[in-house]
Nucleic acid binder design. Sequence first.
DNA 1: AACTTCATGTCGCGG
DNA 2: CCGCGACGTGAAGTT
Lengths: 278, 278
Amino acid sequence: MPPIVDFHLQPQLEELAKFLRQHLSVRRALLIILANCSVEYEGRSASHLGEGDRLIIIKPDGAVLVHRPWGYSPVNWQPDSKVLEVFMETKHNSEKVVVIKSVRARPREVLLIRISKAYLVAAAQGLEDSAEFVEYLDERQIRDILASHPEEIEPGLRIVRVEKPIEPGFIDLYGIDSQGNNVIIEIKRVTANVSAVKQLKEYVDAFKAKNPHTRVRGILVAPSISKEALLLLNKYGLEFKQINIEKLYRKYFSLEKRSTQKHASILDFIEKAALGSR
Amino acid sequence: MPPIVDFHLQPQLEELAKFLRQHLSVRRALLIILANCSVEYEGRSASHLGEGDRLIIIKPDGAVLVHRPWGYSPVNWQPDSKVLEVFMETKHNSEKVVVIKSVRARPREVLLIRISKAYLVAAAQGLEDSAEFVEYLDERQIRDILASHPEEIEPGLRIVRVEKPIEPGFIDLYGIDSQGNNVIIEIKRVTANVSAVKQLKEYVDAFKAKNPHTRVRGILVAPSISKEALLLLNKYGLEFKQINIEKLYRKYFSLEKRSTQKHASILDFIEKAALGSR
DNA sequence: AACTTCATGTCGCGG
DNA sequence: CCGCGACGTGAAGTT
């Protein structure tokens, strides 16, 4: 059963309010409003946004987004609202506006959207979206691949423990090298920065403190490292190992993990995208 | 001049493609598409999303958002695309889909949205939004308030330097207490955690290293502190000072800073919101 | 519920 | 353009 879409072009404010109330009360719809509005927010922070043309989205679960005509981020939002109210308000200059008030419970945050002119409002009832979202190449997967194929870090390296708890936090990989040294490995899926180095240093120090008479190496594994981070790394006597995440992925992401057609398709896509880039 | 809104309800795929191409080519419109689609992404990461009903937004600046019917975050997106293409594709089962291909330049990322059924498409040309976005209560403002009113941290404290550079980073506030001790202050606008404590510790240590024969105190200023952070703080011999950000703000946010009507309005709003919460 | 860590984080600022 | 830190970060997972 396809979703039911209802809409008004250039609705009067009274119509808009009625439309919104109707679709918020019965069964929650996805609401799309294109309108001139101002926005106030108060909660963990507070903000004011003057009048302008914006896209307002209200999702069935109470998420509210106010988008300006540019950029990725909503200018104001509510991840989920406990209370959603629509009412008319008369401004000082006796102009009327439709107010959408969204209140989030914890942390308590209030969002007020004042609409002075609406260009389009639409509501969709019965949207269905149960598809699985499959993501690749996140830190966990890289870590698992390297745990199974430590030779990609260094020949002779043997991984003893994945996500080894230490005070405080977790070591991504812990192993023993060909010389019998303890090796602590910190993995980053993006350019390693100073804080990654500090984190590794902390783990190495903590390990040394607990095991005073053993030799410990610290290796930072990442696709690249910032200049400052490299300097600090050298200063601390730690090491850097560059990896190519995509290559690792192509090489090792195991068949059993992408056995379903759905999972396999991503690799086809990567191939296509790579071709398309030339 | 109000924006021009064009739309189709339940467009055929060919119509959809034509509509999109038209509004993407001439002058960029804000595009809203409610449709059943699947999405592939490849770039810094990679993902696959099967078919489902979603809201697709394409902004005039090339930002692309794919929203599922719930939650704050888009499931797939492109912060700004360099290339935006729309074309028809025939699947293996000979069904046709409209493909929206968005390519981001740096980092190179490709987004493919395959639409199998469209419920609504709308385009808005000439949206105007030049309003200023004013935000309050961010770390910078809290820092400035405390710099002007150090007695809120401790009686007799005198602030010498704001954003004092140190190796590495910047001390939020640096001052001298009533006993003549150096005081290093780190401010957080949310619950202070372990990393905030470490950051402060680092600054204090760096200061001590540079000034070996002076006494230094480190104060973490925040609305609250996590249990673990407090433990570590005590271990390091550092101090915590609790502040109430909203109270500070009400008390000190200076008249000259909110001299314009616009800026003043946020306080009215906060009042109203506070009343509304009862 | 508190807290930690990851993220296709995004965004802005400074060198 | 890098690199770093703040963010109303959000979201997921663990204690």
